[in-house]
Nucleic acid binder design. Sequence first.
DNA 1: ATTTATGTTCTACATTTGTAGAGTAATATT
DNA 2: AATATTACTCTACAAATGTAGAACATAAAT
Lengths: 121, 121
Amino acid sequence: MKLSKTEEQLMQHLWKLEKAFMKDILEQYNDPKPATTTIATLLKRMTDKGYVAYKTFGKSREYYPLIKKSDYFSKHVNGLIKNFFNDSASQFASFFTRETNLTKEELEDLRKLIDNEIKKK
Amino acid sequence: MKLSKTEEQLMQHLWKLEKAFMKDILEQYNDPKPATTTIATLLKRMTDKGYVAYKTFGKSREYYPLIKKSDYFSKHVNGLIKNFFNDSASQFASFFTRETNLTKEELEDLRKLIDNEIKKK
DNA sequence: ATTTATGTTCTACATTTGTAGAGTAATATT
DNA sequence: AATATTACTCTACAAATGTAGAACATAAAT
C-alpha cells in the first residue's frame, strides 16, 4: 500500500536522519509543527503499511525506514512514466530535458553523466 | 486543487481524445469498466476543480480538458523534484539517468537532445 | 406513442487521509 | 517523593476519494 503525501514527507525526514526518535523527527518540521500525536499516528500507519520499523529503547522508539529512498523513488517515477509517457522512459527523458529549466552547466554535467552511462553499455 | 489518482487517469483519456462524450470515455476503460455514474461523478468533481469543461450538445455533453498535459505534467514532476531532490532538477536528472534502464540507443538520443538544448543557451 | 438506451444529478456509504485531544506510562527534574 | 515532560495508544472527526444505486430526462428505435 502506498504512502500518502504527508506520510511521504515524514519518510523524507526518516531517510535523511536514517534513524530517529520522535523528538528528532519533530525537529525536522518547520513551524507550525504538527502535534506529536499527529506524527505518532502517521508513524503507526506507516509501520502498518510496512515502510517503517523501530527499535525500542526503554521508554521510546528509534524509528527507521524499511525501504531505500532510491527504491521508493524508482517505483514512483516509473509510475509517473507509465502514466504520462506510455511507459517510455526515453519519451519521458526528452520531455524532461526540454521542459525543466536546467542551466547550461547542469545540462553539461548531465551530458557527461550520460556519456558515462553509454560507455558502460 | 489537485486531481486524485483516478481523476488523473480519466484526464489521460481526455487528453488522448481531446474531447469526448461519456460513451467515448467509457470505451477507453478496460474491463471491468466502472459504472457510468462513477465516471459522471468524477467528471463533475473535475469540472468543479477546474480541470474539465464541456459543451452541451442536445442531451449530452462533450467534455474537454482545460489544462494541457504538458503543463500538468511539469507541475507534477516539479513537485516530485522538490520532494525528492531538494528542488534540484539536475540532481534528479542524474539520478534518473542512472536508475532508469534506458538502452544505449535511448541514451544516445537523449544526449543529442541535450546537446541541442545546450546550443540553444 | 411506447419502449429502450443513454447521460445526468442526487444521494449514499465505506475507506483513506489529515489532524489532534484524552488518557496513560515512563522518565527526568526539582 | 512530587511534578513536569515525553512518547505512545485510543478515539474521534472532518474532508477527500472510490464507487455506484435510484430517479429523472431526453433521444433513438420500434
